[in-house]
Design a protein around this nucleic acid. Structure first.
Lengths: 153, 153
DNA sequence: TATTGTTATACTCTATAACTATA
DNA sequence: TATAGTTATAGAGTATAACAATA
């Protein structure tokens, strides 16, 4: 039994960065629990999903699309290759460049993750109506686009 | 001039964790730029603000209120004490416990940060109407409360 | 000269286990 | 036995500088 002091948060809940951080920690925790059986972190999942929808894309374009810096993207691709979920193949026309593809295992893993994704999304939006959830996605995308840390250029 | 391949993100923008991460990175980047002159990171700012609104609070209660684990809170308080922005004082009645207070410098720093906070919040919500911004805070808080990673219990 | 991918590195945040001193 | 604070440690995300190979 804790004393549960219920401290005063002051203006913090009205600061967007604070509200985002709190929500993101909670959502990622649910994601982690949901995808632990598949050993997939959010970053790995996002890379697999991006490659699935853009087979043959350049590594640098993939990193930029996800807002991940190139040096940090290398380790993610290394792990996906080591686990035989994706591979780097030589790109036609530019011998510096790598074309990214899913392996059969990668395709299968994403397919087997479909139910988990649906259930995860349902859980994290359980307190929202469908309309509110749609609005939340849209507002977040608008905030991000208006600031545009990376990819906006 | 990059090729700007504009890759397909697939279902990612409709996943709450992804949308939150993208928005949070952008908002924290603006925060960092805005508070670099004061050498304040989001975590340090949140601790100072919490102490301001709860002078004399216990260290463990402060950590719990912010969703920061106790061991990680120690280094934050160490830095605030080293910079003479806050201090740990002996709590009355329990010699294990620390009561947290702002120093004069801490009060002054938060005061001098007020304009930066207002401008930062205005920038990160520049693409939202006031009603949309208020709704966004509320939806984020609801998501976080319904999952409740730490402090909920 | 510029770009692609890489290595090395550093800092921050998050997480767990184990310790101390008190209670 | 339990709690408050601490230490040590580890993992993951994020960031910059510099390099090799190629354009």
């Amino acid at each position: 039994m804790s004393h549960q002091s219920k401290l005063e948060l002051g203006p913090l809940p009205q600061m967007l960065g604070y509200a985002l951080r709190r929500a993101q920690i909670a959502v990622f925790e649910d994601f982690g629990a949901s995808f632990k059986p598949l050993n997939l972190r959010p970053a790995l999942f996002s890379v697999l999903t991006l490659i699935k929808h853009n087979p043959g894309c350049k590594q640098s374009d993939a990193a930029e699309a996800l807002g991940i810096m190139q040096p940090n993207f290398v380790a993610l691709m290394d792990e996906l290759e080591r686990r035989d979920l994706a591979r780097r193949t030589p790109a036609k026309g530019d011998r510096r460049s790598h074309a990214l593809e899913l392996t059969e295992d990668g395709v299968a893993l994403l397919h087997s993750a479909r139910d988990s994704i649906v259930h995860h999304e349902a859980r994290v939006t359980t307190s929202l109506t469908p309309a509110e959830a749609a609005l939340l996605y849209e507002l977040l995308a608008r905030v991000e686009r208006s600031l545009g840390s990376l990819d906006s250029e």
